[in-house]
């Protein structure tokens, strides 16, 4: 019968085999089960009365936030400046430290694949896995509260980020250009200066600006644990339940973030 054959033909046409199909459904099932299990474990101590009350809470907080206490902006100018400084100096610190690490981590520039490269990779992974807020927490206990702890926290967190992207860029360079400079009898430092640096410069600039943009956001919260910037004011306002100040702070952060995004877009445009 033609229709039956057509139906047969259709089943023979499937993109995947039956075994693959089964495996795929099993994987989805596993994910769903994992989700349900996680959800149950996560919410076992949740007080649902609070959650049901959330819309009312949100409305209440929203009401107290409005209107923002505009006069408070005078006291925010210095913290905002500090926030910018933390992000900028932190990014500079990170770049200063990440560049040598990246060269030690890249397969084609590391002095030793066996010994130096793993250490450099470990530095990159370790600094990347720890959030800047945790770095800030550690540094505030060591250095005491202040802008310095914030700068170093942002800097340390960014080493891994900048280092990882930069060493990947170094590994992707055109080897022929390096070979040509080596063939002139140039010393290793000259090879880096003439053959490698020109090739990675655009990537380097892009990565730095990208990270600076992210760091503006990060530096707005390191103050929550005492590491300077506008986060300090946020913490203080939250503690006194001054929601009309909180809303102004959030607006100020939003403005700073938009500004930094505009700047980084401009700079990236100028480079490319």
């Amino acid at each position: 019968m033609p229709t039956a054959r057509a139906a047969d033909g259709a089943s023979a046409w499937r993109r995947t085999t039956r075994a693959q199909d089964l495996l795929r459904w099993f994987a989805w099932l596993l994910l769903a089960a994992l989700f349900v299990f996680s959800w149950n474990v996560m919410t076992k101590d949740t007080i649902w009365a609070f959650v049901r009350d959330a819309p009312a809470q949100a409305a209440d907080i929203g009401g107290r936030m409005m209107p923002p206490r505009w006069s408070y902006i005078v006291q925010l100018s210095r913290p905002l400046w500090d926030t910018l400084s933390i992000a900028t100096l932190g990014t500079l610190l990170a770049i200063l430290l990440a560049v040598p690490v990246a060269f030690l981590a890249a397969r084609n520039t590391t002095p030793s694949v066996m010994f130096v490269r793993p250490v450099a990779l470990l530095i990159i992974v370790a600094t990347r896995s720890i959030n800047s807020l945790i770095w800030a927490l550690l540094l505030v206990t060591v250095l005491g509260p202040g802008v310095l702890a914030g700068i170093i926290a942002i800097g340390l967190r960014s080493i891994g980020f900048v280092g990882k992207l930069l060493y990947e860029a170094i590994e992707e360079i055109d080897h022929a250009q390096v070979e040509a400079v080596v063939a002139t009898g140039a010393a290793p430092a000259q090879v880096i200066d003439y053959a490698i640096v020109p090739q990675i410069l655009p990537a380097f600039a892009g990565i730095s600006v990208f990270r600076w943009d992210i760091n503006i956001r990060e530096s707005s919260v390191v103050g929550l644990v005492g590491a300077g910037g506008i986060g300090l004011n946020l913490e203080a306002s939250l503690n006194t339940l001054a929601w009309s100040q909180v809303s102004l702070i959030l607006l100020a952060i939003l403005g700073t973030v938009l500004f930094s995004e505009w700047v980084s877009a401009k700079v990236r445009h100028a480079i490319i």
């Binding site: 055109d174 022929a176 250009q177 070979e179 040509a180 400079v181 003439y194 053959a195 020109p198 090739q199 410069l201 655009p202």
Partner: peptide, 8 residues
């Protein structure tokens, strides 16, 4: 392929 440093 000439192997010039393109960006210099």
């Amino acid at each position: 392929e000439f192997a010039l440093v393109e960006r210099l």
